[in-house]
Amino acid sequence: MSYVKPKFHHPSLKPNKVGYNKADYEGVISTLCAGCGHDSISGAIVQACYEISLEPHRLAKLSGIGCSSKTPTYFLSNSHGFNSVHGRMPSITTGANMANRDLIYLGVSGDGDTASIGMGQFVHAIRRNLNMVYIVMNNGCYGLTKGQDSATADFGSISKAGESNPYQGIDLAGLALELNATFVGRSFSGDKNQLVPMIKAAMAHPGFAFLDVISPCVTFNNNKTSTRSYSHVRAHIESTSIFDFVPEQDEIRVDYPEGKSAEVELFDGSKIHLSKLAPDWNPTDRFSAVNRLHEAKSRGQILTGLYYINTESKDLHEMMNTVDTPLNTLQQKDLCPGNSKLQSINKTFR
């Protein structure tokens, strides 16, 4: 069952620039297990949309099947949503995006939904640089079907039942980098300070923005021996940077601690401010990102933060050269060539 959340306005919360309160970005009350990482990610999505003053109806939220894929009901009730079939969210999003290039598409998936049944569609959405935000809520298991190992489970991670995973885990962020995804990052459901600006930056990116968010499953995969447990992740997390996203019109108002700072300007004038924690990494250099990721892995660390951004990203519409007007607004008079054209076509068949 879903419930409608009572919406009361906290007097201290101000409406954002487009006149919406934070509550306007919420969804119905979650039915996930208490403490599930996925709920924290939903919270981060609400926070990010509120902060960037997104009009909720300008976003469409889409998902596959799984506990993670249920979350779109738990945020942005004023946005159209689509809980599709297992592993096929990318194709639905591709079609939706073809029909209307003007909306923001937020796709939510699980590690089962993406790395197994949906692997084909995932890699092809990357290949097409579909303009969307793709969030994987990665818990290393199939939550909804009661805890089987997923394809992203780390090699040697020990399950609740005490079994060690004999298979190599698929690193979705590494794969996305390999496939030339134009925006790749990893975060942790428990690190809202990092996750919220990352979601905002991903939404501003004009292409495929991939976020692999580690999100512990408290019910089936939070035992201490699991590499996706809260305790393991907290103990092994390492960041690429301290990170903030600054929308186009906003003033820079963040103070960065020590370290080399960097600034990445996005196509719409928005900026990502980074305080780099590793000198040999540059967010616009894919090779350094790949190296940095491998290096952290070899040390048993979980690298989070923005890995890579291609600031010259061209999305699928640009590649295909479709008209600027959303295709779903074209009318019969724009689309139907009329009878006289048809009669001249007939002539070619005589």
Binding site: S84, P90, T94, G95, N100, Q121, H124, L327, N328
Partner: peptide, 14 residues
């Protein structure tokens, strides 16, 4: 994927 794209597009009004 082909039919998924069709469904996404018609859902979105094309």
């Amino acid at each position: 994927a082909a039919i998924g794209m069709v469904i996404g597009a018609t859902w979105n009004g094309a």
